[in-house]
Nucleic acid binder design. Structure first.
Lengths: 347, 347
DNA sequence: CAAGGCTAGGAAAACCTTTGCTCGCACGAA
DNA sequence: TTCGTGCGAGCAAAGGTTTTCCTAGCCTTG
């Protein structure tokens, strides 16, 4: 019955009301369904003539295989979940993009899940991903601080990107914050700066903590102390950068460089210095962090800054996930992605 | 054979090597597969006791239905594609989020496709989405300029968000650029400003064009001309805002307000004015556009600006898509989302 | 007491593709 | 001529769920 309708519509070659199935292709090519499948997938052996006949039939019908059927039969979805815990912020976006890029190349599609930092939403998305039988999950967030691992995922491989898991047995890909700070400090030292101030974000942020620690260590290694004797913790804003500049200039009028925890702070510092008639970089050099174009390029002068290469973090996370999917289990451990120093005019 | 393994493992109640199927649940509850399905879905009629027995069995086994099987049988995927043409930019991100939010509420998952503005990549993603039998597609981009419609999607409903389709028979949801400009101009007029300058982006951007047009129209309606006699087109940068400020002050020293095409330009204007000792908003008021937090809040003073409510655009696009999916065909036409004026200190 | 209706639950088809196995045929060698 | 080999192609099962149709049993009503 449905066959006769099928035959009728295809014989008059009209836009099919229903999408062409493999069976339609097979019929048109005069072969069995199994043979058609093998012809299209390139597996199995058959006369070249048969194969081309099937290919032509598929083409003529605009056949596109039903992935649901393929997935059901294969037991996998060729899909990974991308969970972001904070909307899609300034940090997670490049990570997502890098991951999407690497995965797309591998015939894998990306299911986007935004939890908005809400545990309920996270659990909801998680069960959705499980029902959909995703091949794996990439988890990313807004902060470099470690986050509790996803619970109840069974044996689905997971890779944490940017925000590592608190469980060291999980697979995480993170930025080398200490290394990034190292690049900045070495650069300033190489420029001959010796009175270096460090102004950064909240002390309870791992990013601020890690970068400050390495900064102080490296200065100590060079036989120096920070210009004001300590690191200045505040928030990640321009306003804090401006306020901190006042404090630093008061405590250490001979300061000759600022290394800032992000580009917003750095921009605040640059503004404050300019308004006091202090020349950047002649009198005081500035290095920022994040290489956030809208900030770093618009600052006067444009900022020398540290780029965490977030896209690369996403790409590597995706590659590790792909490997884990093939292997069955993720290789545990934290992998660190080096940062790059982008030199512009401020230092 | 596999049955006996199944029975053995479940009888000793050990973590199953394979995920529980509906058949396992049915066995455990002592009912048939069909009944188990009905019990779980809430359809069909049965004794409450039977239903709870099935529910308990499902729970005990940690059963989660195989969506591939469900989708295959239902012929749909409960998935929509989100195509963005420009990475995930500052504009498309809120749109994506809004859409994801609205869709997630409706049990629909989101497949993320980033074309990076590349037609080949777009075509590739498109065929992937078709194979996966997505229920619909939302297309978004970085600019408000219309874009050519997606070709070859068959009967899959599509809604264009933020960047409308050039084909008016498609369904598009866009920001009311003219209305946004209206809010800004009315606000300035209400403040008693009469010498208003308009500084905006490239003349070949629809956003710049639309906003400038409405600005000039409204000023004319009020019996006014723009302070410099014309709109100033440039680029979307702070540097342009600073340069334009010089030009405007030269041509119209009595200017008492700037309406800027985006917050970056507005911030450039604010900086330039402050550096000349001109007080904002006492001497000159400023209104920006976009309500980009990092810019609008960091400017001195914080910017009064127009918020396009991008999340709402995404949400409405998602709702229209949902309606189109249910109805079979999208209701064609362009829908316009009103903007809001965010009043801060600059005007 | 009998007949009809209602309900709980089961059987099986359908959704579409993949893949291992089998069958048949043709050709070559003994 | 017969047997073996190999290749081309088809058959059928499997993958897991939903849904329609049916059956069997019970209750109600005449």
């Amino acid at each position: 019955m449905s066959d006769s309708i099928q035959a009728a519509t295809s014989s008059i070659d009209v836009a099919l009301p229903t999408r062409a199935r493999l069976a339609d292709v097979a019929t048109r090519a005069g072969v069995s369904v199994g043979t058609a499948s093998k012809a299209l997938s390139g597996s199995g052996r058959m006369r070249p003539e048969t194969r081309t006949r099937v290919l032509q039939a598929a083409d003529a019908l605009g056949f596109s295989p039903n992935r649901h059927a393929q997935n059901l039969q294969a037991g996998r979805s060729w899909t990974v979940g991308l969970m972001t815990t904070d909307g899609i912020g300034r940090f997670s976006t490049p990570v997502l993009l890098g991951a999407e890029d690497a995965l797309g190349a591998g015939k894998i599609s990306v299911l986007l899940c935004d939890t908005r930092g809400d545990a309920i939403r996270e659990q909801h998305h998680l069960s959705t991903l499980i029902e959909r039988r995703v091949d794996g999950i990439i988890v990313t967030g807004r902060r470099t601080d470690a986050r509790p691992p996803l619970a109840g995922v069974g044996s689905i491989p997971i890779v944490y990107a940017f925000s590592p898991s608190t469980d060291p047995r999980d697979a995480s890909v993170v930025s080398d914050d200490a290394g990034g700070a190292g690049l900045a400090v070495e650069h300033l030292l190489g420029l001959g700066r010796v009175r270096i101030a460090h102004v950064t974000g909240p002390a309870h942020h791992a990013a601020a903590q890690d970068r400050a620690q390495r900064t102080l260590d490296l200065l100590a290694d060079a036989g120096l102390a920070p210009a004001t004797g300590r690191a200045h913790f505040g928030d990640w804003s321009e306003a804090w950068g401006r306020r901190a500049t006042d404090a630093v200039l008061r405590a250490a009028p001979d300061v000759d460089a600022f290394f800032c925890g992000n580009d917003q702070i750095a921009r605040g510092v640059a503004d404050a210095l300019r308004e006091r008639g202090i020349s950047v970089p002649d009198d005081v050099a500035i290095v920022g962090y994040d290489n956030w174009d809208a900030m770093a390029l618009a600052a006067r002068p444009p900022l020398t800054t540290v780029d965490m290469d977030l896209g690369e973090i996403g790409r590597i996370a995706a590659l590790r996930l792909l490997a884990a999917i093939d292997a069955g289990e993720p290789r545990p451990g934290v992998e660190t992605v080096p940062s790059r120093l982008i030199v512009r005019e401020s230092a």
